[in-house]
Amino acid sequence: MADVLGSFEQAVLLAIVRLDDGAYGRAILNEVAARLERDVAAGAVQATLERLERKGLVRSRLGTGTPIRDGRARRFYAVSAEGVHQLNETRTAHDLIWRGFARPLKARA
């Protein structure tokens, strides 16, 4: 089985999948924050994106800037085939671990 992705890595990868063509830094940050229901640091998302790109799980391209960002370029991300494979592997691993347990898990008295 391939390496299982961490929960933050999964959140970032799934945000890219959801955002499709609009997956750039700020949009990913807001999508991850909305899904995790907490404030997320831009540095955490950026560091994760850099790590995922080094692992070959995402690829990026530069887009054009807009006046609101003083013309600074946007970097758009897309999940690679290896990234999709890793997401599926991670989901399978989680399903296997949780198989046979009712949700929510009850604490023993």
Partner: peptide, 9 residues
């Protein structure tokens, strides 16, 4: 790109 993202947000 990162400084642009932060500025936009």
């Amino acid at each position: 790109t990162v400084s642009g993202d932060l500025l936009e947000e």
